[in-house]
């Protein structure tokens, strides 16, 4: 049972958001086959907040009109995750369940991530929460957050005398 790290472009020096957000992104990697082990380690792992590689990878983009937050979370159903907005914080919660109800299964390899996640992303500008929309396609969640009127970029005309 190996957890293969996928190569990610993660630059710790380029993070406009607070490092604390990452620390509070919780994750319980339920990647085990036998039940006993699961019961023993699961509570420990759930309370261990320093698993940086755990929660879904997130991209944040911005243009004049909106902020787009994208999360990579393959293989989930619509009712397995939720998106909430709390002031300027976007909360992404969910759980990808490991289908271990199949007792006759002979598992060879588990590399995909399973478990619970709770990711908080501080948004860089104020947004119009009531106009936010989200789309889940090909395992990628796209959240579009229109910027509030005051946060939009405006060109200032310069009068040269």
């Amino acid at each position: 049972m190996t957890r293969v790290p996928v190569v990610r472009n993660r630059n710790p020096w380029y993070e406009p958001f607070d490092l604390m957000n990452r620390l509070f992104s919780r994750w319980s990697p339920v990647q085990r086959q036998d039940k006993e082990e699961d019961d023993f380690f699961a509570p420990l792992l759930r309370d261990f907040p320093f698993d940086f590689g755990g929660s879904p990878a997130v991209d944040v983009e911005e243009n004049d009109q909106e902020i787009v937050v994208r999360a990579e979370m393959p293989g989930m159903e619509k009712d397995e995750f939720s998106i909430e907005l709390e002031d300027d914080t976007l909360i992404l919660r969910g759980e990808k369940k490991y289908q271990d109800e199949h007792k006759d299964r002979n598992v060879h390899r588990v590399e995909c991530r399973y478990g619970r996640f709770d990711r908080r992303i501080t948004l860089p500008t104020s947004i119009q929460a009531d106009k936010a929309s989200a789309e889940y396609k090909n395992g990628v969640l796209n959240i579009t957050l229109p910027k509030s009127e005051t946060a939009r970029r405006k060109a200032i005309a310069v009068h040269v005398k």
């Binding site: 990878a57 997130v58 991209d59 983009e61 911005e62 004049d64």
Partner: peptide, 15 residues
């Protein structure tokens, strides 16, 4: 997979 970039990247963990 195709890139769906809509603006400037502010923070990137995957591509």
């Amino acid at each position: 997979s195709k890139s769906h970039a809509v603006g400037n990247s502010m923070y990137a963990e995957f591509e």
